[in-house]
Amino acid sequence: MEITTRGLWTLVHGMGFGALYLLACSGALVELWRRYAPNDLSPVTERDEALLRWYLLSMAVLAWITVLTGTYIIYPWYRAVPPVGTVNLTGYPQRLLLSNAATGGWHSIGMEWKEHVAWLVPISITMAFAVFNKHRRNLRNHPELRAAVLSFMMISFLAAGIAGFFGAMLNKHAPVEGGQTIHLMQGESR
């Protein structure tokens, strides 16, 4: 069982940071919607507030790490230009996808959308954290502000889902591979 360093980075970026953000997003949406509703009479304790503050801060950190690793570590490998005359495009995912009409759309639509739409996520969730950090339980007294934060978080969930979906499909059709090979485990061979 082996994995390349580029494959490992892609795995950490998508299955680690990105997937974790998606999982966390649903929890934050439910908590903000349920516990901070204007008509909710149940008390919000300092512990409840602290939990959501740390939760949203963690989500913002995750979102930033995800887009930064994607943009500055993985994307350069993805868009690398092969030397003239290269026949085997395995190490050049973008060129590999564009070399075939059946897979070209994964780049021209999938990656082109993913690389931009993903950046809406850290902007939205950082805003959500900042607003909650300032208003905390007082958000119940500002239902329109809470609605705006919830809406941005839902769009961030959608944007992260789009980026995640295309990331998975791109990696299926043209995986980012290369660099050192890391030997994980010895399996049985027949």
């Binding site: 304790t45 902007i123 939205s124 007082n138 705006a148 934060v149």
Partner: peptide, 28 residues
Amino acid sequence: SASTPKPAAQAMTNGSGAAAVLAAGVGS
């Protein structure tokens, strides 16, 4: 205590929140 709710600050303005929301929209 950690489990005791304290009353919400009614007087808090929404200006800083509005700034964060609008800036996020314009930035996007």
